[in-house]
Amino acid sequence: MSQDNSIGPAPGTVNPTPLPLIEVRGVDMGYGGSVLLREISFEVMPGDIFIIMGGSGSGKSTLLRALIGLKRPMKGSVLHKGVNFWDQELPEREKIMRDFGVLYQGGALWSSLTVLENLALPLEQYTSLSRDEIVEIVRLKLALVGLTGFEELYPSELSGGMRKRAGLARALALDPDILFLDEPTSGLDPLNAHRFDNLVGELRDSLGSTVVVVTHELASIFAIGTNSIYIDGETGTVTAQGDPKRLLKESTDFTVRNFLTRGSLEDADNEGRQP
């Protein structure tokens, strides 16, 4: 009766030879002369909800900046659909970047534009749709994130959670192949964070998009993550990789297990030392 022709494979389908959508090979990142991240390597497969996790200041967002084309790695390569992103000339890189949808930590909505104008801008730039069609698409995106009727408001008139949802709607404006979310649920109450996670999962299931999420919110990590890496803040390296739920059960790395259990191993260690 029904069929799913969405972008990327439908959930549960098995592609015999899946090619990674993103490959990160031996990337070093840093600021000035100091290296923050060393020898980072991982692959993001189509349809994944890939979590980049780690403590505060571990360099998660810095790594994200290399993936979305905002910061060139000091060493190593980032491949998008097999193309070495940072080896390309700027116009080519910009073309690749059009397949990205990015939700920044604070929403990053343009404050001088209304919500509708924020979402319409990418559509005006990169499609040949008429104004009425653009408004129709914008209304649809806003409806998807539960912001119907907020079209004419300015970002400063929205709450933090609404700004994030509007940011997500803007990230979805061009139906991107890959959605990058930087700390999407930080600052949201548990209920709204839960709803946001559901929304991301549903969008992935329905559109077949691939999602890369930078977060340290454990609830979100376990709720939506299908694959992940853990960045150790002290060494700046990836110390664990895999399904977060499996990592919780099987990882032998103290730091990773301690992170995933919200410091319970540390507490047990401290209690054991007390006389």
């Binding site: 029904s2 069929q3 409806a143 539960g146 119907t148």
Partner: peptide
């Protein structure tokens, strides 16, 4: 609807239900 992608149906339903959850009437500017 016949033969429409499941994903599209799900998203349409989501757009409908999310609109019901919270709808702000546009204030005349």
């Amino acid at each position: 609807s016949e033969g429409l992608p499941e994903g599209s149906q799900r998203l349409l339903e989501r757009a409908r239900s999310a609109s019901k959850q919270i709808t702000l009437q546009n204030q005349p500017r």
